[in-house]
Structures are given as C-alpha cells and as structure tokens.
Design a protein around this nucleic acid. Sequence first.
DNA 1: CGCTCGGTTGATGCACATCAAAGGCTGTGG
DNA 2: CCACAGCCTTTGATGTGCATCAACCGAGCG
Lengths: 234, 234
Amino acid sequence: MIDKKSAFKAIFSELSQFPIFLGLKTADIEALCEGGEVVATSHRHALFHFDDDAHYFGIVLSGAYKLSKPTPSGNDVIIYFSTPGDVIAAFIMSQPAPKYPVSAIAMGPSRFLKLPRSVYLNQWVKYPEMILRLQNSLSTRVGQLHNYQVLSKAPLATKVASLLMQMLQKSEDKNDLTLPSPLTRKEIADSLGASVESVIRVMSEWSKAGIIETKDHQIKILKLEKIIEMMKQQ
Amino acid sequence: MIDKKSAFKAIFSELSQFPIFLGLKTADIEALCEGGEVVATSHRHALFHFDDDAHYFGIVLSGAYKLSKPTPSGNDVIIYFSTPGDVIAAFIMSQPAPKYPVSAIAMGPSRFLKLPRSVYLNQWVKYPEMILRLQNSLSTRVGQLHNYQVLSKAPLATKVASLLMQMLQKSEDKNDLTLPSPLTRKEIADSLGASVESVIRVMSEWSKAGIIETKDHQIKILKLEKIIEMMKQQ
DNA sequence: CGCTCGGTTGATGCACATCAAAGGCTGTGG
DNA sequence: CCACAGCCTTTGATGTGCATCAACCGAGCG
C-alpha cells in the first residue's frame, strides 16, 4: 500500500478545483477523501459492472467514463458520460446493500479516485454542505433526463445536436468548440437509443456541409449556429 | 387565514403515514410543515405552471397530479405522475431564484399541502434525515428514468406494459390490480412519447384478449402474467 | 499480416406517426 | 333543459423515419 498522505497531496491540486470541493478547507477535503485510492484504467476497461456489489464510490480525475446499462437483448444503453470532477455512485451508498445500477467503462485512459463506502457513511453524510452539493448535481441530472424525454418525438438530427451541445457545455474552454471527450458514433447512438447507421447518416451530412469535423474521435463544431438551428426544429 | 394549528391537526393523520415522515416525532412534522396550506384543485386545473417562479413546494395529500413539460411544438410530455405522499419541487428550492421545471396538473379532484420555500430553507435543510430521505426518493426517480431509457428501442407494447407495472407498484393494496390513479390513453401516450392512436391500438388488443379492463379511466389488470410477459419481450 | 474496431453506403421493410372521421360522455351556458 | 363544445376513445387508410441487413474500406495493433 502506498503512502496515503503523500498520495493525497499529489492529487489535492486536482481535487480542490472540482466544483464539488470548491471553497472547502484542505482538512475537510482530506477527511472526505480518507482511504482514497487512485485507479488508472485503460480504454474500454471497466471500473465496475452493472449489478456488482457496490463497495465504493468516487470521483473522476481525468479522462472519461461511460455509464451504461445492459438491455434484455444484450445491448447496452449509455446513461451518462462522466467527466473529470463528476462524483459517481455516491447516492446509492446510503442503501443497505447497494449494487451498481450501471457499468462504468473508461473511454480512453482515465483516472478515478476510489473511495470506500464507509467514508461516505461516516464522513460525507456528516457534511450537510456536501449532501446539498450532491443533491444539486443529482437534480441537474434529473433535469437533463427530462430534457431528453421532451425530445422523444423529435427527429434524430435534433437529438444528436442536443447531445453535442450538452457535451459542449461541460467543456472548460468556451472558445474551443471541440467536445471535451472523444466520442464514437456508436456511443452517440447508444446514448440516444438509435442505430449507429442512422447517427452516421446524420453526422456525415454535417461533415460534408462543414458543420462539424471529426479527427481521432474528437468532434469539433465548426458552425455552432447550424447546430443550434437543428436543435430547435422538431 | 384559517387557524393553522387546527388545520395541521386535521391533516396530521394523513401526513404521518407517508414514507417521507414515517417515524418522525409529531413536533418535527409540525415544524417541517409550518406555514402549510391545503390547496384543493379540481380536474385539469394547475397547481403551478412550467417556468413560473417557484415560491413553494409541497406534498400530495390525495388524488394525483401529472407533472408535464411543454415541447417546442406546443405539445406536452408527461414527466411523472405524483400520487399521495409524493413531495413535489423540493429539490429545486435550494436554487437562488428557482423556477418550476414542470407544470403540475390535477388528474381528478386532488389535494396538496403547499409549503413556502422559506420552510424548506429554514427547516428541511436542517434535518439531515429529511435530506437523506429526499435524496433517496430522487435517486429512485433517477433509476426509473434510466429504466425508461433502456426501453427506448423496445416496441410500444413493452413500454405500455412497463408503465402499467410501474404505476401498479405504487398501489397500497397488492391484491387489487387496479391502478391507483385514473389514466387516459392520451396521458399514457404523452408519458411514453407515443401517439394516442398507437397506445389505443395496443391496449384495445389487450382489452379484447381480456388482459386488462378499463372502467371510468380506472385501468384494471386481469392477467398479470400476460403483462409481465409483454415487458420482457423486446 | 490477419484481426478487430470504427466509419460509411445502399437496399429493403416495418413499426409507428399522421390524417381523417365518427360516436359517446360530460359539463356548461343560453 | 337542451344544444353545443370539448374531451376521450376508436377504427381505417396512408405515409415515412429509422432499423435492419449486408457489404466494404482504412487504420491501428498484437
């Protein structure tokens, strides 16, 4: 086992920047991350699987993870793309014998700060401020899911445009219109409940029209107005 | 203004049965419901509208409310059916200047205990137990939304079956297979993102086959196995 | 150098939307 | 008290967006 104190110091600068910890005292952050362990996962490797016993939760440090749920027919539906600063699986920790409701799979090399469930029960719930912050991110999440429902009858192009815009909003740098994490067409399809081919048909139209550009799975938006226009139509 | 003390006594027996208050001391429940006011709404009347300033949250006492969100094209999508005991709009109360993310419309005569936002900020947030209970119901809700996403590619019959089962699970009496609240075909369609006609085509098949029965918008399930069977196929 | 993975394109079919029309039921206002 | 409007349900005819199936290409990789 590595020296935890020094491990904490090494990632503290990362942690303190995340909204969830912003403005907290160093000692508090340290207490909240007690027993934490940094896990590095490579592309397509799982942090945990759907229905596994949930012994830990944690925070995405770098890269990205897709959270997906298997369908009865053996496919996967992508529920969420977690990017740095996102807290994963925290809100199931208070259940008696929690199981992960999704699988978490790395998209490219990624790092995760793994925290034992006991820390949640002993520390996190004791900080009312923490609970409120978690509640806020949960309620934002619910809002996103509602927006998705509103789009249920919209044409596929609208859904794809909305997804791109949603991803873009997570980006730090508002001047760079490149999505913060790489995304394959299949991943887009799986998160919209569409087929790869249909997504490709929509997006290659856009590529030809110079609205977007894909290089090495990094999607860049060239004509933002066009995308916004696509979102509105229905 | 009515005498609040006596008003509270009158509904206390209702309140204390709801999961959200179960096991709490009378004094605590009274504190949490301070300044509460019972609102009676008749069929199709709104408690509040989408995008209104949110000055209050509250608890459904009787009847049911549908929470819906307008689409750009002027239709409505039903986000949730709230039944007695459900807490509505609590988790947006902690935002600076909250607006309702949905409209709440009564399905049949219904009663609602309306609580001012200040009570949430001054009382509810102070009870860690309350916050955790709210978090739990929110996380259940997120789970339901995920289940809905998993069904995105499933045939309509599967979606309708799942919705019926979900409604049925809220029912108190596990022996009576009548859904706890009346539901029109249009409401089912709006909550599944389908057209009324398609929902009718599915359900009238079932009526003919003696799987369900509708009387006065009350839907009763006659052959539960058949419905469960429908849910599985995809 | 074969293998897997991601992207692309075309042909075909189907589930569901849309449009249209009609009947029953309820509440409401002249 | 009846006529009328609005809501809910139903059925049929028609159209279409997207899934599905099939095939191919290029790039990276062990």
